[in-house]
Design a protein around this nucleic acid. Sequence first.
DNA 1: TGTATTGCTACTATAATAGTAGCACAATAA
DNA 2: TTATTGTGCTACTATTATAGTAGCAATACA
Lengths: 112, 112
Amino acid sequence: MTEGKNPLPKPGSPVRGSQSGQPIMVLFDLLSRRWALGVLWNLSDQNRTFRDLQARCGSASPSVLNTRLKELRAVGLVEKAADGYALSQTGRALFSRLEPLGDWAMKWVPTL
Amino acid sequence: MTEGKNPLPKPGSPVRGSQSGQPIMVLFDLLSRRWALGVLWNLSDQNRTFRDLQARCGSASPSVLNTRLKELRAVGLVEKAADGYALSQTGRALFSRLEPLGDWAMKWVPTL
DNA sequence: TGTATTGCTACTATAATAGTAGCACAATAA
DNA sequence: TTATTGTGCTACTATTATAGTAGCAATACA
């Protein structure tokens, strides 16, 4: 790695040591941060307040949730609305690719 | 949380403080561990050795990679083959739901 | 003028990961 | 037989991320 920290994905730069810089790895890096997927998922059906999200994201501490929300807003997946946080149009596009995981998880998780 | 650590998802128990226990959250918890998505992705086209995976997963340290592989094997997404690690049938089923993210990332990431 | 709710920030403790070294084993070469 | 090389790890320390808790400023409402 040529850089020290990587708090946020930035144009053209790889993220958190993913090195390759392949788009999918950049995306994976973002999504593999704690509660990132959960936030996107919980915003998919309706806008939610900070504390609502917190409640739905299990034990997410406010500091982490806030960090995650900042990141997701910084990359334009989430935005603020009058009634709380919301998925942006881009966020919704991403969610539509995530959605199939829901059905699959419902079938698979019980088999664990 | 009523339990201390949560090294592996177990039947019927929520994971890493996801509390709700919703299948999708259990899955998200698993996938949001470092390099989990990367491993699945890199195994999708061919089997790979430990060191090959390591190289493809950026700076993944062997200890973490090994932990991740153990977890993914424990839940039956990955298995060992003669020529290294491989996606199981279940793993391939999951990957097919993940795959659309690749195309999307290629369009989206450059806009960051 | 309280009182409650919300969106945070700050701080400490713990868990996860990075980074590095190195060992046991198998295959290959000399 | 003895190197030599490559591979799959394990062990250990340093750093980073997250959990868990407290609390404050702002707004809404009573």
